[in-house]
């Protein structure tokens, strides 16, 4: 599903975020990406979603080499990915419902059908009762769950999460991990970047560990 082949990413100024990274994630697999902060976890996720491009090597997602994708094709790649951010990236000028509605509006489609899917996604993360609330009125854990609802409303085959439990206390973090587990069970491919040791120990999932931009085997 996701294949990195000798990927290097260098930032202007010479800093090497990823050095010769090679790995493969099969469809339906749940993989953790571990490592200290600054090890290149976010950069790796950015490369999958083509938010950044590698300097060398290939990043193949669903059979497409993302590294050489034209700008015009990017939106269609991203519609098949669910992105979950540490800082949530929610929009505070609209309700929780409308936040989750955004990906469906972008794809276009029947409003009533879309609304049903939005409510299903909100229900999945336990926020159905808060659909009219502004995200600013939600707690950190609720905001993170709202971000997850937005990522899954499109029913993507791949979910990418960058420190999804980074700012949360243990109880909330456990809830989030349970939600991810349930996606794993229905066959979604998950790549979760985290430095949360308890989460890593909790699940018997493969873990890729990055250290100074290099993959530790």
């Amino acid at each position: 599903m996701i294949r990195f082949n000798q990927v290097c990413k260098r930032y202007p100024g010479g800093y090497e975020a990823l050095k010769n990274v090679t790995f493969e994630i099969a469809g339906g697999e749940m993989v953790f990406l571990a490592g200290h902060s600054g090890a290149g976890k976010s950069t790796l996720l950015h490369l999958v979603a083509a938010i950044e491009r590698p300097n060398s090597g290939s990043v193949v997602v669903r059979g497409q080499n993302v590294a050489s994708l034209r700008g015009g094709a990017l939106p269609y790649l991203r519609r098949n990915l669910g992105l979950i951010f540490q800082d949530h990236k929610l929009l505070f000028d609209r309700s929780a419902f409308d936040n989750v509605m955004l990906p469906l509006q972008i794809c276009g489609g029947d409003y009533r059908e879309s609304a049903k899917r939005v409510r299903a996604a909100l229900d999945k993360v336990g926020l159905l009762q808060r659909e009219k609330a502004n995200p600013i009125a939600l707690s950190g854990g609720e905001q993170q769950r709202l971000c997850i609802a937005r990522a899954i409303v499109n029913r993507p085959s791949i979910l990418l999460a960058d420190e999804p439990t980074g700012n949360l206390d243990a109880g909330y973090a456990g809830e989030i991990m349970d939600i991810f587990q349930s996606f794993h069970q229905v066959g979604v491919t998950l790549l979760i970047a985290t430095h949360d040791e308890s989460a890593l120990r909790h699940f018997a999932a493969r873990t890729l560990t990055l250290k100074h931009g290099e993959l530790q085997q």
Binding site: R78, R79, K89, I106, A151
Partner: peptide
Amino acid sequence: EVSKLIGAT
């Protein structure tokens, strides 16, 4: 920014 991230053309 968010729209671009979630696949807006």
